[in-house]
Computed example of a mutant assay.
Amino acid sequence: MWWTYALLSAFFASLTAILAKIGVTGVNSDLATAIRTVVVLIVAWGIVFSRGELKGIHELSKYTLIFLVLSGLATGLSWIFYYKALQIGKVSQVAPVDKLSVALTILLSVLILKEALTLKAAIGALLIVGGTLVLIL
């Protein structure tokens, strides 16, 4: 079932790139990111409230909150740089380069989380890096 959500994520990420490229035209990229962030905030909290999941907030540990905040900061910086890149670059180049994050995530999962690096994951990461280099050059 996880792969269904992952495919939906990929589909909406691709729509994000196209819609953002259109929306960022003639607008400061930081302002565009801020508007997008407000929409994400409203949707995310709307889902939490509609499913009655707010009660779990009291169960979060300080450790969990720290890493969720750090993750949020990383997401915010990613979006800011992504929108700036979309504003000045071609979406057909920016979006695939952004997906270099997949190869970086594989590397970081091995280094930080101590996950095992399989041959399949290593080959996939190398192919992503190679494809990214083809698009950049």
Rank of each mutant, 00 (worst) to 15 (best):
I88P: 00
A116C: 06
A125E: 00
A85D: 02
A125L: 05
L77Y: 15
T75V: 13
L111Q: 08
K84E: 07
L19R: 10
V48N: 05
F49G: 08
K99G: 05
N28L: 03
G131F: 01
S61Q: 09
Y63H: 14
V91D: 04
L68I: 09
L111R: 09
K99M: 09
L133R: 02
W2E: 03
L133V: 15
W2M: 09
I57G: 05
Q93H: 07
E53C: 10
K114P: 06
M1F: 08
K120Y: 02
V91K: 10
V129Q: 02
D98E: 09
A20E: 00
I136L: 15
L73S: 08
G72W: 04
I66Q: 12
K62I: 02
L86H: 00
I128C: 05
R51L: 10
T118F: 06
A121I: 07
E115T: 10
L68K: 01
I123K: 09
W79D: 01
S9G: 13
V39Q: 06
Y83Q: 07
G89I: 09
L86R: 02
A125W: 01
G124K: 01
L73C: 14
A125T: 05
V69A: 14
L60C: 08
L104V: 13
T25M: 11
T4A: 13
I42L: 13
K114V: 03
E115Y: 08
F81W: 05
L133Y: 08
S29E: 12
L100V: 12
I112K: 06
G131R: 08
L126F: 13
A13R: 09
L60R: 12
V110T: 11
W45T: 14
G130H: 07
G130Y: 07
L77A: 14
L127E: 08
Y5H: 13
F12K: 12
K90R: 12
